[in-house]
Amino acid sequence: MIDDTTPIATLFERAEDYTKTSIKLAKLKAIDKSAEMVSSLFSLIVVSMTVVLSIIIISIGFALWIGKLLGDTFYGFFIIGAFYMLIAIFLRIFKEQWLKYPVSNSIIKHMMKTNRITE
């Protein structure tokens, strides 16, 4: 059997196959990164909600306890509220270095992590 394909035609076929494979790999990498980010976000939300609910319940308990010690329940709630106001002020002052940069760096590290598909 005689091979009718020219070297240029073979080169174009290989380039086309390479392009299709590269596009498929890019799609798989995007899917992998998306799935990783969504699963990380979901687990972070679940853990955060659990922590928030725990803090709320513990705060109510402390407020009632402090209020009982001081004689009126509302004193305890005022003290706990003032404590959270101080935390909010500190977070507002230091939001760049405590919140923004660590979150940005974490997202960048997740996005730049070597892909397991190519390995």
Rank of each mutant, 00 (worst) to 15 (best):
50 T>W: 03
2 I>W: 06
86 L>D: 02
15 A>V: 01
108 I>R: 13
64 L>M: 15
30 A>P: 14
43 S>T: 13
83 F>G: 00
24 K>E: 13
9 A>W: 00
20 K>F: 09
35 A>C: 03
57 I>D: 15
90 F>I: 09
52 V>W: 08
102 P>R: 15
58 I>L: 03
73 T>N: 10
93 I>H: 11
71 G>R: 02
95 K>R: 10
35 A>T: 06
46 V>D: 01
97 Q>M: 12
8 I>P: 01
72 D>M: 14
40 S>I: 12
93 I>F: 08
114 T>K: 10
97 Q>P: 10
73 T>S: 13
2 I>M: 15
108 I>H: 05
87 I>Q: 09
50 T>Y: 09
102 P>V: 13
62 F>V: 14
31 I>F: 12
3 D>S: 12
17 D>T: 02
101 Y>K: 12
79 I>N: 00
109 K>E: 13
115 N>K: 14
12 F>N: 09
31 I>T: 15
92 R>P: 05
81 G>F: 11
84 Y>M: 08
89 I>S: 02
102 P>N: 12
22 S>R: 14
1 M>N: 05
28 L>V: 14
42 F>R: 07
109 K>M: 10
21 T>V: 13
14 R>G: 03
89 I>R: 00
73 T>Y: 13
84 Y>G: 05
112 M>H: 15
45 I>Y: 05
1 M>H: 09
18 Y>F: 12
79 I>V: 12
48 S>Y: 03
87 I>E: 02
105 N>C: 08
101 Y>F: 12
34 S>C: 10
37 M>T: 07
104 S>M: 03
113 K>Y: 01
89 I>Q: 05
98 W>T: 15
77 F>D: 07
110 H>Y: 06
66 I>V: 11
10 T>M: 00
51 V>M: 08
37 M>S: 01
16 E>C: 01
114 T>S: 13
60 I>R: 01
117 I>K: 05
119 E>S: 03
17 D>E: 04
60 I>A: 02
59 S>G: 07
20 K>P: 06
51 V>C: 05
40 S>P: 06
19 T>G: 08
116 R>L: 10
47 V>A: 02
24 K>T: 15
51 V>P: 04
9 A>E: 06
64 L>E: 04
44 L>I: 13
82 A>G: 03
53 L>D: 05
23 I>A: 15
65 W>V: 10
44 L>A: 13
82 A>S: 06
14 R>Y: 05
7 P>M: 08
83 F>R: 01
80 I>S: 04
51 V>E: 07
9 A>H: 05
1 M>G: 15
33 K>G: 03
3 D>I: 09
8 I>K: 08
63 A>C: 08
25 L>Y: 14
78 F>L: 15
46 V>P: 02
87 I>K: 01
117 I>H: 06
100 K>M: 14
117 I>C: 07
92 R>E: 08
7 P>N: 03
61 G>W: 06
85 M>D: 04
95 K>D: 05
64 L>F: 07
93 I>R: 05
20 K>A: 03
26 A>H: 09
73 T>L: 13
30 A>C: 14
105 N>W: 04
98 W>N: 13
52 V>P: 00
68 K>V: 14
41 L>E: 02
92 R>V: 07
